[in-house]
Amino acid sequence: MSDSTIKVILSETKKRIPKPEELEFGRVFTDHMFVMDFEDGKGWHRPRIIPYQPITLDPSAKILHYGQSVFEGLKAYSSKEDDILLFRPEKNMERLNRSNDRLCIPSIDEDFALKALKQLLEIDKEWIPKAEGTSLYIRPFIFSTEPYLGVAPSTSYTFMITLSPVGAYYKEGINPVKIAVETEFVRAVHGGTGYAKTGGNYAGSLKAQVNSEKKGYSQVLWLDGNEKKYIEEVGSMNVFFKINGEIVTPALNGSILDGITRDSIIQLLKHWGIKVTERKISFTEIYEAYHAGQLEEAFGTGTAAVISPIGEFGWKEEKLILNNGETGEVSKRLYDTLTGIQKGELEDPFGWRVTV
């Protein structure tokens, strides 16, 4: 960092803070945002908190042509004592740098980024909603800005953090969602960018997402890119299955996102003494377990939804209905426990919770 002093320019006007019942996911943004720039030879510099506003880009900026960008997602909560709480934020900054490395973007100072985030939260803390199922979503992101059409890493970048008060990611909330198993398109392959949080991964997933929504499904379940056989992840979540009392989730293989909620769930299950296994698992195995009466639950995990029970899989022309479309016991316990830790309502035996 060539400059570690964060300049603050406060907004002269205040936007109306929406009521909890008005909140959707990612539609409304707070009064301020954090911005920092990078240039070759200068490094990261000019950190500032300024009023939320549009950005100006050169038409030839590399982000518009080659998609060199990364992002993160985490949440802030307000405790009953009005403390601002974060959940394992250092893991998000670590993962942001892993994504940076894959996309040839200069690394950030993780401690400084957390300092900037905390300062931004203090300024906009009145935006943190308190109602059940709500939170303040945090979106750190970096994009290339050099005005040059040559295919090479950019020499300049912008790092930003914006804040958005949100309700449930899925309209179903904690109620089970319907997931379509994708058999035509693939999300990622080994050696690609699947483990990075980069915009191109999500742009490439939209066609399958749109097709599945037309059939009444909330998301798609991606299979591996080579054989279209092994389960990888859901569009916005990692995925878990309860088979004969054992929790199984796909092992990280370079094309699956290393979810922070995923890691937290694995630790929580082991803490409870529940067997959890990370391994390759085909959807054929899930199909056979379902018809044998051994598939007891399935759920997705991610920052946006936290825990999302899965009530139905659509595979080829068949519908696999789980738990009569109701939330499973483990899914509910995990959701209640993790959100309780995040909001400061339950003991945190892991030291995950950070008070701003």
Results as ranks from 00 to 15, higher is better:
187 R>C: 02
195 Y>G: 12
88 R>M: 11
111 D>S: 14
260 I>W: 03
298 A>V: 09
83 D>A: 04
310 I>D: 01
5 T>P: 10
301 T>L: 03
29 F>H: 01
118 K>L: 09
149 L>Q: 02
327 T>P: 06
338 L>E: 04
55 I>N: 14
74 L>H: 03
237 M>Y: 06
105 I>R: 03
288 E>M: 08
277 T>L: 13
262 R>G: 02
275 K>T: 15
190 H>A: 15
152 A>K: 15
288 E>H: 13
118 K>I: 10
204 G>M: 09
87 F>I: 04
241 F>M: 04
356 V>H: 11
91 K>S: 14
133 G>R: 01
148 Y>V: 13
256 I>A: 03
97 N>E: 05
77 Y>H: 05
283 F>H: 14
107 S>K: 15
125 K>P: 06
344 G>N: 00
254 G>Y: 10
319 K>D: 11
105 I>T: 00
219 Q>A: 07
274 I>R: 06
51 P>H: 04
113 A>T: 05
276 V>T: 07
121 L>H: 08
326 E>R: 15
104 C>A: 14
154 S>G: 02
204 G>S: 06
242 K>L: 15
26 G>M: 06
97 N>F: 08
239 V>H: 03
12 E>T: 11
274 I>S: 05
12 E>K: 15
232 E>G: 01
136 L>G: 03
318 E>C: 11
198 T>A: 10
353 R>F: 07
95 R>M: 03
195 Y>C: 14
181 V>P: 08
263 D>Y: 10
156 S>E: 07
41 G>F: 08
164 S>M: 04
47 P>G: 01
223 L>A: 04
311 G>A: 01
161 I>E: 02
321 I>N: 06
305 A>P: 11
294 Q>L: 12
355 T>E: 12
235 G>N: 07
70 V>C: 06
337 T>V: 08
150 G>S: 13
333 R>G: 10
83 D>G: 04
143 F>Y: 13
118 K>G: 08
21 E>N: 10
141 F>G: 05
83 D>Y: 05
145 T>P: 03
220 V>A: 06
60 S>W: 09
204 G>P: 04
126 E>L: 13
163 L>D: 02
354 V>N: 02
345 E>N: 10
248 V>S: 08
179 I>P: 07
308 S>Y: 11
99 S>M: 02
38 F>D: 01
65 H>R: 01
245 G>Q: 00
351 G>E: 00
228 K>Q: 14
307 I>S: 05
19 K>D: 10
236 S>P: 09
337 T>L: 12
6 I>Y: 00
69 S>L: 08
53 Q>L: 08
275 K>Y: 07
233 E>P: 01
40 D>C: 12
10 L>W: 11
25 F>I: 02
356 V>K: 11
46 R>S: 15
276 V>P: 02
126 E>M: 13
333 R>I: 08
263 D>M: 14
348 D>S: 00
148 Y>Q: 13
256 I>M: 01
85 L>T: 02
116 A>G: 00
260 I>V: 07
163 L>S: 00
217 Y>H: 10
81 E>L: 13
75 K>M: 02
84 I>N: 07
58 D>K: 10
56 T>H: 12
322 L>K: 02
291 H>W: 13
168 A>K: 12
141 F>K: 06
166 V>H: 03
356 V>Y: 13
317 E>P: 13
50 I>P: 00
345 E>Q: 11
63 I>C: 09
172 E>Y: 12
70 V>M: 05
206 L>R: 10
215 K>Q: 13
